[in-house]
Amino acid sequence: MEIVPNNKWQTLFLRKDWWKYLAIVLVTYALIGGMLFPIPNMDIVDHTARNLHYHVPMWFGMVLLLFAGLVSSVAYLRTFDLRYDALTSALNSVGIVYGLLGLTTGMVWANYTWGEPWSNDPKQASAAIAMLMYFAYFILRGSIDDEDKSGKVSAVYNIIIFFVYIALIFIIPRLTESLHPGSGGNPAFSSEDQDNRLKMVFYPAVIGFTLLGFWMASIRLRIQYLAEGWKIK
């Protein structure tokens, strides 16, 4: 058993519960409200517009989780504290789950509105490439036995891929036209485009699903703490 010093993020992440209750409330609201509240009538899209509440929060959640992973990697390289390495891998693994869920919910939706599950849309492509990079992160992390070295090398790779992913979001749309809202003349999140009835569920859903993602990451981190035998002072 190794006693580890306490600090702010650890307290918030592993000891405080209020944000987990908030996640439960918001996700429950999003599930019920997203399915039952009235939405504006539109051709073609019809009730598939309700997917907005479940698909888009996955993407927001993924980017925020991966960003938190980046911050944690930087913290690892500054301190060489293995808890940050465990935190990065916990955040990235939930980020990958969100990415895969975002791709799946998007593909189901695209099948009904764009006519096919995979239409080579830039955002689909960049999300898929991001998944490849983050899977490579886990392969890299797993293939080095020495814990300190594995943490160091994977933190370096994690920092590089986050920035490349952000660059990718801007570059890939130059390859092909996007079908996504907000590009190619499609309506998006500006005030005239999005109905207030949708916003009432959408924003809480984004916050709720993001918090749920951090909750899952904190459980993975807790498992890591138990496996390593770390005990908070």
């Binding site: 490849l132 293939s143 990718l168």
Partner: peptide, 20 residues
Amino acid sequence: AQVGNNATIMPILSFPVIIP
């Protein structure tokens, strides 16, 4: 190079990054 003798690791790491 940190991984040592692993022929597949270089393409795995670099192909997604080189895509942009």
